[in-house]
Amino acid sequence: MNREPILQVDNLTKLYAAGKGCEAVSFDLYPGEVLGIVGESGSGKSTLLNCLSVRLAPDEGDIHYLTRADEWVNLYGLSESRQRHLQRTEWGIVHQHPRDGLRMGVSAGANIGERLMATGERHYGNLRQTAQSWMNDVELDIARIDDKPTTYSGGMQQRLQIARNLVTHPRLVFMDEPTGGLDVSVQARLLDLLRQLVTEMNLAVVIVTHDLAVARLLAQRLIVMRHGRVVETGLTDQVLDDPQHAYTQLLVSSVLTS
């Protein structure tokens, strides 16, 4: 296969104190690939994700991204308006808490339509249709299109957030514990849905999770972090079935099995 990566991370470092944050992280991400970042609380997973999605400037290191126009850009060398433009058009960011990613004061339809309006869609009928088809895709009841997300359950809010992010057909999606805080049956359906959308849309995804089951189900490749450093990388099955690093072994063995 002669494919170019979509994202190249080189020696990325953001430290709040020694061992707090993320340090010397490097990896490549290819189109259509799902990369899982696992590790315990405080291991720097979310810091890394925030750095990647240009929401937190790193102390050191570079991130290069291949845009839709086939142009390599250095993310932190871009102007703020270009960064926002990328976030709006080519990326999606799914927050752990739907409240952080949704506008709770406006209806579900408006939430899905916002990105389209921001990129210049000015036809109400089209916006409405797109919102309905996306609600359908994420298994939300179309009749609730004019209800505010405050009236939705946690799982519905999370699915709405996913629809809101995918509506502009991003190429790269960042997810921070998308199934955190949901009960197990809802989690399973959400994971199913995510896996299906990722395959259909050929998305590149960076997913942060502390749940190894989520990682195994969604991610093709894994990065294991501890104390801000990458301790092990590799194919998901390989890492989980034959962990090499002592910490990964501990992590895998500590999963409860019924």
Binding site: R88, R103, V106, G109, A110, G113, E114, R115, M117, A118, T119, R122, Y124, L127
Partner: peptide, 8 residues
């Protein structure tokens, strides 16, 4: 983009 949300 948010300005059109109000009209929407």
């Amino acid at each position: 983009g948010v300005m059109h949300i109000k009209l929407y």
